[in-house]
Structure formats: C-alpha cells, structure tokens
Amino acid sequence: MLLARSSLFLAFLAGAFATSRSYNIVGPAKSCQRAVKPDAWPIKKELQVCGTDGVIYPNLDALECAKNYSGHAVEKQESDKCDAQKQDESKLFFLTYAADHEVCGSDNVTYINVWKMQEVAQYRKVEITVQHEGECKIDCSFSPIYKPVCVSSYGLDSEQTFSNEEEFKCFSSQNPYLNLSRKYDGACVFNYENSFAPVNIICGTNGFTYKNVNEIRKLRKSNPKLRVMHDGACTPDEVKGLFSADQIRELAGSRSESSAICGSDNSTYHSVFAFLVAQADKKAKGQDLMPVNCVQCNEMTKSNGTSPICGTDGVTYPDEKALGCIENYLILKEHDGPCSPSDETGPCKRQLNGGFAEVCATNGITYTSNEAVWCAALTDPKIKILHQLECISD
C-alpha cells in the first residue's frame, strides 16, 4: 500500500518553499529526527505502517513522531485496516516541519528537510532529488560596488533593485522558481519626492542638517551646487564658518532641524543654531559652553588604553569610551581585544552577506553596504562613509 505521491501536502503549500526554521518544534523527539532523514524518501512500501487513526505513515518513526507532535494516542495496527484510497494526506503535513535536517536539493535550494523538498517538487511539478545533506553551497561571485540593476520580480509587474549584477545572479541561482528577469541597468525608477527613506541625519554643504539625502536631492533642483558634507548633523564649528552671528541668531528662532545638542550646562538645545546663540551669550558673560560630547571626549584622551576593543569597522580602539567618542554612530563594539585579519566577524567577511542598503563613501563611490565601505577603508583609511543611499551625481 504505497502512499500516493501525486498530491501529497499540495493544498498546504503557502509559497514558503525555501529553508525556514519558524516551524521547528521545540526539542523534537528522536523519532521525528529520524522521520525526516534524507533516506526517508522515496517512501518504501515495506516500511509503511498503518495507524489506529486510519493514516498510512511512511514508516514507524513517522507514526511515533505524529504521536509526539499531536499528543494523540496513535498506535500501529494491522495494515489491512487502513484504506489507501481514502487517505487524508493533510495528516502528514506535520513532517515538513517536525524537525530540522537540512538537505540541498538538485535545484540548488536548501530545504528544512526532505519532506519540505518533496512538497515543493509536487507543487512545482518537477523532480527534485537530494544532492547532499546540509545547506547548499553556491559559489557566487561578489562585488562591493553598487551598480544597480532593475529586475521584474516574481513574474509580476512589480520591480526589485539589486545592488549589482553579481547579487542578482546569485539570488537567481538560489531562487530558481521566481522567474526573475532583468529589465534595465540602474535602480528601479521611483519618485524620490514621494518615496520613504529612513532617517539618516546628514550635514549639507550649506550648513543645514537634513533628515536624509533625499531631502538634498529635492533641493538640488533649485540649488544644483548643494552636496552632502558628511554623515551626521552639522557641527557648531562648521556652522560658524558659514553664517554670520546675526544670521545664526535669526536661524535659531526660525529653523527647525534634527541637530539637537546637549550642552555642558545640562541644557538641551533644539538646534546647532540655538546652541551657538547660547554659547555666544555665555561667552559675553565670561562663561564657557561646550557640547557635552566634546567635554567628555576631551577627557577620554587621557585614557591609557589598557582595554582595547575591536569595532564593527575592523578598527581597534583604546577602550569602549574612546569608541563612544567617534562621530559615526553606526560603528559599535564587535569584541574585546584588538581586531585581527582573521576575525570571522570582520567587515570584509560580513560584506559577503550581500548588500543591505547602498552607501555613499567619501571617494564618490557607492558601495553595497556599510561593511563594504569599512572593508575598503582598511586598505585606504581616507575612505569613510559620507551618507546612506546612493551618491548624488551631477
């Protein structure tokens, strides 16, 4: 009484055919682990067992797994008491997520177990066999440079931007059923003015602080010379070099921007302009006012650096306090002790995970991620992150 293959689990496929751990039950019984081993498929007639629930199970381990998973008292009974023509195949759906035992299919897709692989094979009406146990290892070429291509995704009218040709080819090889097709070079066209962009504070060359680079893109229509000066809010020294004292005082009362500053007088100033006005007023009274971070970091220079740490940018800092004084909030602590070229978590290794969001560097090149910029900076320390998103071109 061989269980039919034609429609096994078909009605339950929700499109999630690649590896997924979200269904993995906690502490699966050993019977479940054995039930999903690669040699469980194809089903062997001599190993099938009939359960007291009327279900024909692929083998005894699958029956025991069903008992463990459902909590129902399912036992083995004589084979002639199960009718192969009246099987509710949904009863075996639990095998697709009963336990993890990754296999690499002949389609180069990694599946959570062999039953998930066969679920996809039947849904796609293709034959998929096991290449080997474990995750598929696809040798993808990699490029850290952002040269986007626009692709039609899932065979629909929707579009998706890939960081570069290498990322597109790698993704396509790992997802053979998506039927991706290349449309044109460059990012998929969309309206910058109406599009959502995450808040990523940047300083413009006009001394104003903006929420993200898209604000500068819009302003460049009327001011083509406007550029990004650097990531993060404009500093008091930068603003003082661009505006007169009277202009700063006027802007303090009229301009609202994301450049709040904590002063050494324990007051928070809503903008760099408001801070500069207060600083000038206090100076007239013989008092000093500095940004708190500057005060703290001046003290940090006295650190003896006896507890070095490695930052996520692959640079070694004297200690955690020194790391806290750098202007790039994206750089965090990676581990205790100095960085090493052999670090498995260094930026040059992490960049291989693919592009997350394009990043513009000070050399005018758009990279696929922060990690790609930091990796390049290990060779050329002059390279730094200028701002998130693609560089502004003339």
Score class of each variant (00 low, 15 high):
residue 293 N to P: 00
residue 263 G to E: 00
residue 262 C to W: 00
residue 263 G to V: 03
residue 290 M to Q: 14
residue 293 N to R: 14
residue 282 K to I: 06
residue 298 N to W: 03
residue 326 I to S: 13
residue 261 I to Q: 09
residue 317 Y to K: 04
residue 324 G to I: 04
residue 321 K to M: 06
residue 293 N to E: 09
residue 308 P to C: 07
residue 265 D to K: 03
residue 296 Q to N: 14
residue 321 K to T: 11
residue 325 C to H: 04
residue 297 C to K: 10
residue 296 Q to R: 14
residue 281 D to W: 04
residue 308 P to Y: 05
residue 325 C to A: 07
residue 257 E to L: 02
residue 305 G to C: 15
residue 290 M to F: 15
residue 258 S to I: 12
residue 283 K to G: 08
residue 276 L to P: 07
residue 313 D to V: 06
residue 259 S to A: 14
residue 258 S to E: 10
residue 303 S to V: 10
residue 257 E to Q: 12
residue 326 I to Q: 15
residue 324 G to K: 11
residue 272 V to K: 04
residue 285 K to N: 12
residue 307 S to Y: 11
residue 286 G to T: 00
residue 292 V to W: 11
residue 260 A to W: 01
residue 308 P to M: 00
residue 306 T to R: 10
residue 314 G to A: 01
residue 302 K to W: 11
residue 276 L to S: 03
residue 320 E to A: 14
residue 306 T to P: 01
residue 317 Y to E: 01
residue 278 A to I: 13
residue 312 T to R: 02
residue 281 D to L: 04
residue 280 A to I: 02
residue 315 V to H: 02
residue 272 V to S: 04
residue 289 L to K: 05
residue 303 S to G: 12
residue 306 T to C: 02
residue 321 K to W: 09
residue 322 A to S: 12
residue 282 K to Y: 07
residue 287 Q to W: 05
residue 291 P to C: 08
residue 304 N to A: 15
residue 294 C to Y: 06
residue 321 K to Q: 14
residue 289 L to T: 12
residue 293 N to H: 08
residue 297 C to Q: 07
residue 282 K to W: 01
residue 320 E to W: 01
residue 304 N to M: 15
residue 325 C to V: 08
residue 326 I to K: 12
residue 321 K to L: 15
residue 324 G to D: 13
residue 284 A to D: 15
residue 301 T to P: 03
residue 299 E to I: 13
residue 305 G to T: 07
residue 309 I to P: 01
residue 325 C to I: 07
residue 267 S to R: 11
residue 262 C to R: 08
residue 319 D to N: 05
residue 305 G to P: 06
residue 284 A to Q: 13
residue 286 G to D: 00
residue 312 T to I: 00
residue 271 S to R: 01
residue 265 D to G: 10
residue 278 A to F: 10
residue 304 N to S: 14
residue 298 N to I: 05
residue 260 A to D: 07
residue 259 S to P: 06
residue 320 E to S: 11
residue 276 L to W: 05
residue 312 T to E: 01
residue 279 Q to G: 05
residue 290 M to C: 09
residue 261 I to V: 15
residue 290 M to H: 11
residue 263 G to I: 00
residue 279 Q to I: 00
residue 312 T to W: 09
residue 271 S to V: 00
residue 279 Q to A: 15
residue 320 E to T: 05
residue 290 M to T: 09
residue 321 K to A: 15
residue 304 N to E: 15
residue 258 S to K: 10
residue 287 Q to I: 01
residue 299 E to W: 07
residue 310 C to Y: 10
residue 292 V to N: 13
residue 303 S to A: 14
residue 274 A to T: 10
residue 276 L to I: 02
residue 253 G to I: 01
residue 282 K to N: 11
residue 276 L to C: 10
residue 259 S to R: 06
residue 308 P to S: 14
residue 294 C to L: 05
residue 311 G to A: 08
residue 284 A to M: 11
residue 284 A to T: 09
residue 267 S to G: 02
